[in-house]
Amino acid sequence: MAENVQDIKRRIKSVNSTKQITHAMELVASAKLRKSRELAEGRRPYFEAMIESMGRIVEKSGSTRNVFMNQREVKKVAYIVITGDKGLAGGYNVNVAKLVEDHVANKEDAVIYAVGSRGRDHFRNRDYTIQGEYLGISERPNFFNAREVTAVVMEGFKNGEYDEVYIAYTKFISTISQHASLMKLLPLSVEDLKPVKKAEVVENEGKSKDLTVMLYEPEPEELLTYLIPNFVSSTVYGSMIESAASEQGARRTAMESATTNANEMIDALTLKFNRVRQAAITQEISEIVSGAEALK
């Protein structure tokens, strides 16, 4: 019985206040998660319609001469790393950073664009080249944030600063499961657009038989110069939203288990507290009894 009653009481109190904080954070994260999920669902129609028209144009114009579709020899690689601005979200930030680190073949040939301060700090501490940082947007990204990042990256790609661009984000699978993933953003591969295109052709045949040849005004190539940046922005935006939802999901799970742990700790401490108290009482009684015995 090393500890006295007062100490244990104090510990219970402190664990309890921590529990209240983690529980509050859990509730906040669930509320934010709901909002992020709504955003993620709102994006889907735009993205699907975008892929559809891209696929059609690519098919029509055959092999495109567009810079963003040309594969070239890979010397330098850029990574857009989407993490949160805050910690306390379990492995959320670390998983994304680890994934990128594993993928990087050579530190000198990698360029990092960090969205979220956690990812930036991680790579800055490890002496990576950080070409751009976008802070304070991770939690509620909007389309214009995504476009800003995309514009910078596409410019760099066009100027040959790097030959491939990857985006690292956290895929939102369900409220309790999120998965860090790495996706190639540039150059765009024509193959990616093909499966969607096939499905769409089948659908069109059912709808209208007299599908005459689609006219393009201006030329398909020119339309692509509008569509590609928007397609990439939309992909980046989607990743940002999914990451935001994942961050809240991860935080909710982390805080939930923290609250459970706190409860367990309180239970264990209360048990200990009662034992110590009982032991003190027992000792006192036996002292009194033996004192009384001695007086006889």
Binding site: S53, L211, T212, V213, M214, L215, Y216, E217, P218, L223
Partner: peptide, 19 residues
Amino acid sequence: RGTEGEFAVLAEHTPLTTT
């Protein structure tokens, strides 16, 4: 308003993709 000028679309328009 298209980039090539203002235009109207009615039903049974010929297939067209434009900015």
